[in-house]
Simulated scan of single mutants.
Amino acid sequence: MEVFADFLAGIDNPLHRERTEEVLLWVHTKYPNLKTEFKWKQPMFTDHGTYIIGFSVAKKHLAVAPENAGINQLADEIVKAGFDHTKELVRIPWDRPVDFSLLGKMIEFNILDKADCSTFWR
């Protein structure tokens, strides 16, 4: 998690920083085989050199980016959980709890779906 220290320190709002750190630590603890990386100014987790999930911080939300395939696979559950999404990211408003079960499904889908992937992106 040290790779994320400067990123976390740069989040001005202490509540946003705490929430982001909580999510990153949860992913790191729940999926210890994933590698922590910081690329394109965002914390991300990879598996055998392929992207699994990334995060970014915005004024109104924490953005979760499982790639388009992950969003397509779980679009109904994302909407059912009450989160807004685009083709590439899911927005978790700062004033809403993180749905760790849904987050886990995004990660597990990508780990399985990209098991034989030899590129960083799909």
Rank of each mutant, 00 (worst) to 15 (best):
S56A: 09
N72L: 14
V64K: 04
P32A: 06
D95K: 10
D47Y: 15
E67Q: 12
C117H: 07
K39L: 13
E18P: 00
H48D: 08
L89I: 05
D99A: 00
L62D: 08
H61I: 01
F45V: 04
D47W: 14
K80L: 04
D99R: 00
Y51W: 11
R91T: 03
V90L: 04
A69Q: 08
W94R: 09
F120K: 11
K60R: 12
N33Q: 15
I71T: 07
H85F: 12
E77K: 13
K39N: 13
L15I: 08
R122D: 13
H28M: 07
Q73E: 12
S118Q: 11
I53H: 01
E21F: 03
R19E: 10
N72Y: 05
H61G: 02
L89E: 04
M1A: 14
R91I: 04
L8K: 12
E88P: 00
V79S: 08
L89Q: 07
G10A: 09
Q42G: 11
K80Y: 08
I52L: 05
Q73D: 06
A81F: 00
K80P: 00
S101W: 03
G104P: 04
K39A: 14
E77H: 02
V57Q: 03
E67N: 06
A115I: 05
T119C: 01
D47H: 15
H61F: 07
D47S: 14
I107M: 00
E21M: 06
K87M: 06
D116K: 07
K60A: 15
K59P: 03
K80I: 00
I78Y: 02
A69V: 08
I11S: 02
H61E: 01
E2R: 11
G82Q: 01
S118K: 10
A65P: 00
P14C: 12
W121D: 06
E2M: 07
L34R: 11
F55H: 09
H16R: 15
Y51V: 10
T86E: 04
L8E: 11
W26F: 13
T86W: 02
D95N: 13
K59R: 13
K114L: 11
D6R: 12
E37D: 13
G104I: 06
P66T: 00
L24K: 14
E18R: 13
L15W: 09
H85T: 03
A5W: 02
K80S: 08
R122K: 13
M44N: 14
V64C: 08
Q73R: 10
I78V: 15
T36M: 13
L103M: 03
W40M: 03
G49N: 06
E108D: 10
F4T: 05
A5N: 13
P32N: 09
V64N: 04
V90E: 00
F4A: 02
V23C: 05
A63V: 02
K41M: 12
